[in-house]
Design a protein around this nucleic acid. Structure first.
Ligand SMILES: [Zn+2]
Ligand SMILES: [Zn+2]
Ligand SMILES: [Zn+2]
Ligand SMILES: [Zn+2]
Ligand SMILES: [Zn+2]
Length: 521
DNA sequence: CGCCCCCTGCTGGCTTTAATCTCAACTG
DNA sequence: CAGTTGAGATTAAAGCCAGCAGGGGGCG
């Protein structure tokens, strides 16, 4: 009877027990009691084996199975057994092939919801995790962690940009700040500079007549580092005292070896008739085409603009204009490649009113779209210029910003064709005015040609999750310009591993590209 | 009432796997 | 010198699991 009354409260929605601290209401007093422990930190149920403690007995019981290795939930099909029922439920999906969480942008599907959620970041291009020692950014936190372990730990506290050698992680961290917004990698052949060695190597192919690898002991020089070392061994072996490689023979079979078994010459060059055993051989072959034709490989080019959140709070917004890439030696790359621009704002924590900015991309039909779409990844994301950009530039109400532009940030993205007689198309989308209570109510997205509805749905979802960066993906356009009235401070992130480009600011708004550190708080 | 048990949805972290990059060596 | 290849290193992304919070039912 008592139990029935208790049960009926589910249907009436009656929740008489209110938490004094957070205001949350509960239908049952005992639920309120355990809830209170999350405020008080009281955890009466302690594990005798380790220092785990729980606020309720079930959690402890569940935990205890770790120490006893008790796995009561056994799979009927295979030897798998789990410590709790939900894990078994998930496991059973691998027998049935059931994967209920389907990505709406590609064919990927997942057995658990969080994996899908995480997966969606690969579509957004969002890379929230930045290495504090170098310019690497990661989509996944764990990957950044292993990056730091591999690159910046052990006795490996060498600065990637100069000769500095720290004695600990913290000294390297301190030193790394000196390089922020710098372009320490300088091309010896021209005035080009950039922030990563990888980008410099790409650039150097432009100077294809050069032979940058010179022998220190004679006049020999070569284009290829391996040839220099060959030369060194042959003629200056006495100078090379170190090194004794001695490879270990692991039985590891690489995917490339598998490929080799499957078929001969699987990788065909789409420019000439050549075909290759290995994908990376094809890539290196294509570089030959690139050098002759002054057009590089078709890797996605990524330019990421990112706000420095720590500097943001009171920073005045500035009307600005950014143009992305566009050095003459680089432009041609876009004709074969794809461009991805990430514009990021981080919403300052102090600001509760978030005003949405919106953006749209207008598409100039790519002149050189890939002819064989089926070769592209199944999701087709590279074929259409699509999606989206930009978010929620914060508008602190009392901000002493630069003028009335503040109330209506706008974002303009344009693509324009380089060819003669090309048209310049652009779309300018004013955002909704500031001042609404709920940030989420404010977002405006305007579809323009080539942007499908689903893209915006995806964007919306991202935004509602608090994503701070969105992505513009484009194909085949020669250049993309980004202009925005929103951004306070950009620190450019050209150092992404593939090709990288300088961000050239419009002459009218040089302030935009000041190093973040130089802007007063 | 107050405790126990169980379930679900979600988060965050560690582990594993597969793809890709890079280097070095070798060849014609 | 371009093309190949082997193999280790690194990175990107998926797999998996413990924990937390909320919520429902059983029962002394
Ligand atoms: Zn509370
Ligand atoms: Zn324990
Ligand atoms: Zn099984
Ligand atoms: Zn997907
Ligand atoms: Zn790093």
């Amino acid at each position: 009877m008592k139990d029935m009354e208790r049960h009926l409260k589910i249907h009436t929605g009656d929740k008489p027990h209110k938490c004094e601290v957070c205001g949350k209401c509960f239908s049952r007093k005992d639920k309120l009691k355990t809830h209170m422990r999350c405020h008080t930190g009281v955890k009466p149920y302690k594990c005798k084996t380790c220092d785990y403690a729980a606020a309720d007995s079930s959690s402890l019981n569940k935990h205890l199975r770790i120490h006893s290795d008790e796995r009561p939930f056994k799979c009927q099909i295979c030897p798998y057994a789990s410590r709790n029922s939900s894990q078994l439920t998930v496991h059973l999906r691998s027998h049935t092939g059931d994967a209920p969480f389907q990505c709406w942008l590609c064919s990927a599907k997942f057995k658990i919801s969080s994996d899908l959620k995480r997966h969606m970041r690969v579509h957004s291009g969002e890379k929230p995790f930045k290495c504090e020692f170098c310019n690497v950014r990661c989509t996944m936190k764990g990957n950044l962690k292993s990056h730091i372990r591999i690159k910046h730990s052990g006795n490996n506290f060498k600065c990637p940009h100069c000769d500095f050698l720290g004695d600990s992680k913290s000294t390297l961290r301190k030193h790394s700040r000196l390089h922020q917004s710098e372009h320490p990698e300088k091309c010896p052949e021209c005035s080009y500079s950039c922030s990563s060695k990888a980008a410099l190597r790409v650039h150097e192919r432009i100077h294809c007549t050069e032979r940058p690898f010179k022998c220190n002991y004679c006049s020999f020089d070569t284009k290829q580092p391996s040839n220099l070392s060959k030369h060194m061994k042959k003629f200056h072996a006495d100078m090379l005292k170190t090194e004794a490689p001695e490879r270990k023979d692991t039985g590891r079979q690489s995917s490339r070896q598998v490929t080799k078994l499957d078929a001969k010459k699987t990788f065909h060059c789409d420019i000439c008739e050549a075909s290759f055993m290995r994908e990376d051989s094809l890539r290196s072959h294509k570089r030959q085409h690139s050098e002759y034709h002054d057009s590089k490989n078709s890797d996605v080019t990524v330019v990421q603009l990112h706000l420095d959140a720590s500097k943001q709070p009171a920073a005045p917004l500035t009307v600005g204009h950014l143009q992305v890439p566009l050095q003459s030696s680089q432009v041609s790359q876009f004709s074969e490649g794809r461009v991805k621009i990430i514009v990021g704002h981080q919403v300052p924590q102090t600001n509760t009113i978030v005003q949405a900015a919106a953006a749209a991309v207008n598409i100039v039909p790519p002149t050189l779209v890939a002819q064989t779409p089926e070769e592209l990844p199944g999701n087709g994301r590279l074929q259409i210029l699509r999606q989206v950009s930009l978010i929620a530039p914060p508008q602190p109400s009392g901000c002493p910003g630069e003028a009335g532009t503040l109330s209506q940030p706008t974002v303009l993205l344009t693509t324009h064709e380089q060819a003669a007689g090309a048209t310049l198309q652009q779309t300018l989308i004013p955002t909704t005015p500031a001042g609404t209570q709920e940030g989420t109510g404010n977002q405006t997205f305007i579809a323009s040609s080539g942007i499908t509805c689903s893209d915006f749905e995806g964007l919306n979802a991202l935004i509602q999750e608090g994503t701070a960066e969105v992505t513009v993906v484009s194909d085949g356009g020669q250049s993309i310009a980004v202009a925005t009235t929103a951004p306070p401070i950009f620190s450019s992130q050209q150092e992404l591993p593939k090709q990288t480009y300088s961000i050239i600011h419009g002459a009218a708004h040089p302030a935009l590209l000041c190093p973040a550190d130089s802007i007063p708080d």
